[in-house]
Design a binder for these strands. Structure first.
Lengths: 80, 80
DNA sequence: ACATTTCGTTGTGTAAACACAACATATGAT
DNA sequence: ATCATATGTTGTGTTTACACAACGAAATGT
């Protein structure tokens, strides 16, 4: 199982699956498959999505479950 | 075409294809295919190799040719 | 001279990442 | 009520990343 934050970043930026799919050159269904972990992306696709969100691949895909955002905020000492 | 620095890091550390293949759980031939760009790795394999060399994926794989090490050394102001 | 290791390459088979079409449901706008 | 948009899911087909076996060539060690 490969975990990812695609839906998270998509929600934060208000981008639809269709729009993201067009940006990175794949089918919208492919984004859906990725988001629910039905299959793992190629390195090429992973790099394109990471570039689209301007994040490191390691922050977007992981073989260990991601820490909840709330925990990250606390850990980062975010007082906002 | 996907460029990579697998052979470079392998040479620097004196690791054979066979040894690297065993470390990341693939066939030695698969390492050969990757090194000469015959095919592109899955995200999973890319992450394993990057972890093995302890480098960021972006320093190991790129769709643009890599800068020669000599140029990187100059740019880094390495006086050694 | 011989054995071992490493590398390069090629052929065949399989599993999985994709493309694409199709359909259901929900929501929001008009 | 209707239309558009977003999402979720399923089915079929193609491409390709792999596994594995096999072979040749060069370097190294004995």
């Amino acid at each position: 199982m490969l975990y990812n934050r695609i839906a998270l970043f998509r929600a934060e930026r208000g981008i639809s699956r269709k729009a993201l799919a067009e940006s990175v050159g794949v089918n919208p269904q492919t984004i859906g498959y990725l988001e629910r972990g039905d299959y793992k992306p190629s390195l090429e696709l992973a790099m394109k999505i990471a570039a689209e969100f301007d994040v490191a691949i390691e922050h977007l895909f992981s073989f260990k479950p991601f820490e909840p955002v709330a925990a990250v905020l606390r850990r980062a000492g975010d007082s906002a």
